[in-house]
Design a protein around this nucleic acid. Sequence first.
DNA 1: AAAAAACTAAACTGAACCGTATAGTAACTG
DNA 2: CAGTTACTATACGGTTCAGTTTAGTTTTTT
Lengths: 215, 215
Amino acid sequence: MPPADAGGDAAVPSARERRSQHKRQAVLDGARCEFLQHGYAATSMDRVAAAAGVSKATVYGHFADKQALFRALTEAMVGERLSELFGASPQQALPAEPAAALRELAARCLECRHSQPQFLDFLRLVIAESERFPELAKTFLAQLEHTGVGRVTALFEAIAGAAEAELRARLFMGALVHLILMQDLLHGREVAPVDREAYAELLVRLVSAPPGTPG
Amino acid sequence: MPPADAGGDAAVPSARERRSQHKRQAVLDGARCEFLQHGYAATSMDRVAAAAGVSKATVYGHFADKQALFRALTEAMVGERLSELFGASPQQALPAEPAAALRELAARCLECRHSQPQFLDFLRLVIAESERFPELAKTFLAQLEHTGVGRVTALFEAIAGAAEAELRARLFMGALVHLILMQDLLHGREVAPVDREAYAELLVRLVSAPPGTPG
DNA sequence: AAAAAACTAAACTGAACCGTATAGTAACTG
DNA sequence: CAGTTACTATACGGTTCAGTTTAGTTTTTT
């Protein structure tokens, strides 16, 4: 018999459902472009609709208001941006040797300006709206904890023992994120150029040092 | 003879001049409050005037438009926020011993949430508007280079030789700024609490390590 | 073919905003 | 005291914006 499902969440979506979801995705794509470029306050719903190639009524048919659209967009982005950055993809597996894995991870992060251009804009958006949308900031950090710190901590446990591994991981990630922030987000390459390879190499060397006695 | 100066930049300002500058400062204070709280786009000039306790005509008498006011405000803040953070004040001199100075500097930075609450909002503003006002970002970084990296580099030269001193300084500052950003700006204390003292101590120890051979 | 659902284009409401203008007031100057 | 300056309060013009509505079209379902 034909599916008695009258427009719900069937496993096999109807043609109407597919069309609707297609439009919904178009709205999200348009919103992504506008919000990432102009921030929350300076983005107008008219331009979102135009960028999505969709009428304004359609936008409001899928999302209750501007805030709902923003939240739906950013929630979707938190996951994809971070997991792409840390390479959950199968072909981008890290080397088995911990130190080499760290070096590879550092190189990958410092390349994000080219490999993940949207990530920088997204990071700026998260910081810019961290007061207006604190849940966004928290979700971002929780995902970063889950996707990044966890993995790196495991690497440091293999290098320098378990005691300081998490702190070392945070330090490692922090130094990388900071460089990206200053150089790529704040146009620091034009103000104070830094040798990224030397930076990464020194970072890996220092932060992998054995847990010896303090100087 | 009495000063023939007719309203210019005399060394002894007239009473009128003083009144005017007082109002101008009130406008800047109101603007600071509003811009730091709501960002550029979401701040209205009407609310700036209200926050300053001043009529809107006075605002536009002192500043050509919203952008000019924003630029004047942020330019003024770049200097004061950073120099207060790094303690150019006489009573806040750093210890003579380099390692102790680093520890003191780290502690001071990690306390900025309490000692310099405006700094966090300002940092968020600089990042949020780094595309709309790239000069602001560059000025901020240039000042950070001048006030922060320079000093810290000198400390590391005294510890680990001149070769890697600058990179070590950037690494040191980067790890600190990152922690502040994640914990204080992005509400990370509620998501992933970090022992700040342990973080600072490990940071100082690792980044002060002798320039020995890599592992 | 008829009914239903989702869409489009365009106009509209009510409010906010930037910047200007007007009219009048308080303070300083010569 | 007369003139100038900076201010206040208020209102206005023109634009933009969030969100709704209206009327009509395309697509899917029955």
